[in-house]
Amino acid sequence: MKCDRFAREGSLALERGEPLDPHYASCADCAAALRAYRAIAGDLGGLAADAAPSGDWQARVHARIARERAPRRRWWWLALPVAAAATLALWVTRPSPVTLGLDVQVLPGPGQARAETPKAGDRVAIVATVGGEAAELRVYRGDEVLLRCSDAPPCARAEGRVSAEFVLPGPGRYRTLLVVGEAAAPSGGLDADVSAARAAGARVHLSDEIAVW
């Protein structure tokens, strides 16, 4: 039977740098194993001895490092100034915001002195600031529409304003409604018309009440 003591113990003793006991010299199997061990160890020393890197390998290492160090191209750094410029251009060229307004004044009728309270025959001067938007003026007495116009008489439109003049016909509670945007036709009273206009996306301005007794 073949002795395998070298493989079990002797090789480890060698690796630990310990002296081998006399058995390994007297046992033929172990002596052969020891010779083989030393031969293989020697052959391992010459393994890949002729392998060599390519001539430009150091340059390749530097090139890889340079690629790592180069800042990554981030397209959004280019997009940022473009977006900023576009935003600025839009802001500069945007249409000036128009402050919508409704100014209603009661003026005395022709040849009459101004009274403390409005009275029948007084004129109501209406000026609505609407810019370039579509707009409609209405005057209600209660829920009744007495005046409705936009560009045509009795309204006049000029320089972003719609104006009209209206004579108070008699007692009642009068209110002027400005509808800017798509205005639905009057359909049944001031409150309902205001709600309908808002629901259609229009902006609505309502004047204070003018009460004539």
Partner: peptide, 24 residues
Amino acid sequence: LQRRVARALPALRACLEAQGVASP
């Protein structure tokens, strides 16, 4: 590491012999 190497070399010897490479 010593145990690893000590086991590996006899294994290499067995492998070489199986391939017909004679031991010295």
